[in-house]
């Protein structure tokens, strides 16, 4: 089995700027905040976050904040809950949460909760269990979970539970590993994991491992490195991760590396991108791969960062 090309991945993440006119660059502009979270969290897990100028990152993040309290994907863009969580997570990485007006950010998120307990992504009202997770994760990091109706939020998530034990984006929606991560994560952060049918869901999740060792997100779909995060973190949160073959999954992720130029792709021999590089490194971290900082499966932040948020006050 190959090894993690850690140095090369660090160089890849730091050098994304040099790829002129790449498709990836063009489509990234509006979600630069997410890109920052993926790249910087991966760097932190690889132990190389200190190579960056903290003040520059922080001042850019703050320039993406909207007067409503939410953050946009880039300077001058409309706020969305997706970017707001990324902004808060990156500030947490740098131990800079004190630069934000917590109540302002909190008010923005609180305003997105609907009557049925669900959350919209922005003022336009798209509803999805992804946004429930994001709201709960964000408020938990800010110590403001008490500002939303947690009971209703949990109730909505449970209404998206399917007969296979998994969760979909809205009630009746097909179980999907990405949505399962969001729902299980939100339930974990609100202390509601007793509402998950752990054995049934655990079996569905471990059925996602295919012969190559990779994990898919739904039955009969191709394996993909990003699912190593969503499936794996869910299995850890419900305490069933030993049901899959860790060795085979590690091998699958390592097979997706570009060992020459760094970066990780969705499947072996595909083109790398920062999204899958982050999910590959984060997956390996969950699998306790040597040399990586451990990551928290619910907050999707390094464990030392989470500990700092909750135990250093």
């Amino acid at each position: 089995m190959g090894e993690l090309a850690a140095e090369k991945h660090v160089r890849y993440i730091l050098s994304i700027e040099k790829k002129k006119d790449s498709f990836e660059s063009v489509v990234m502009e509006h979600l630069r905040m997410n890109g920052a979270y993926w790249g910087l969290t991966a760097l932190d897990l690889l132990g190389k976050l200190d190579t960056l100028d903290v003040d520059e990152v922080v001042s850019w993040i703050m320039s993406c904040q909207h007067e409503s309290g939410g953050f946009g994907g880039n300077v001058g863009h409309d706020p969305h809950i997706l970017y707001t969580l990324s902004a808060v997570q990156v500030l947490a990485l740098f131990n800079k949460l004190d630069v934000i007006d917590v109540d302002k950010v909190t008010n923005y998120i609180v305003s997105l909760q609907n009557e049925d307990g669900s959350f919209s992504g922005d003022i336009w009202g798209e509803v999805d269990t992804r946004f429930s997770y994001i709201a709960i994760c964000c408020l938990s990091i800010l110590h403001r979970l008490d500002r939303i109706n947690v009971e209703k939020a949990v109730k909505y998530i449970i209404s998206c539970k399917n007969m296979d034990g998994g969760f979909g984006c809205t009630p009746g929606g097909e179980s999907h590993a990405g949505q399962i991560f969001c729902c299980v994560g939100a339930l974990a952060l609100t202390g509601s994991l007793d509402l998950v049918d752990k054995d049934l869901l655990g079996w569905w999740l471990c059925e996602r491992q295919v012969k190559s060792g990779g994990l898919n997100g739904r039955p009969e779909k191709l394996p993909d490195v990003c699912y190593s995060w969503w499936v794996l973190s869910s299995l850890i949160m419900i305490d069933r991760v030993h049901w899959i073959s860790k060795e085979k999954l590690i091998k699958f992720i390592l097979d997706c590396q570009d060992t020459e130029n760094g970066g990780i792709s969705d499947r072996p021999d595909d083109a790398v991108d920062v999204f899958h590089t982050y999910f590959g490194v984060a997956g390996l971290s969950l699998l306790e791969y040597p040399g990586l900082k451990p990551i928290d499966p619910a907050y999707a932040l390094p464990v030392d960062v989470v500990n700092r948020i909750f135990f250093s006050k």
Partner: peptide, 18 residues
């Protein structure tokens, strides 16, 4: 033009047309 701030964190290069 897009204001990416000085020395952006995840600097982006855009296609000219876009």
């Amino acid at each position: 033009p897009q204001d990416d701030g000085p020395n952006p964190v995840v600097p982006i290069n855009y296609s000219e047309e876009f």
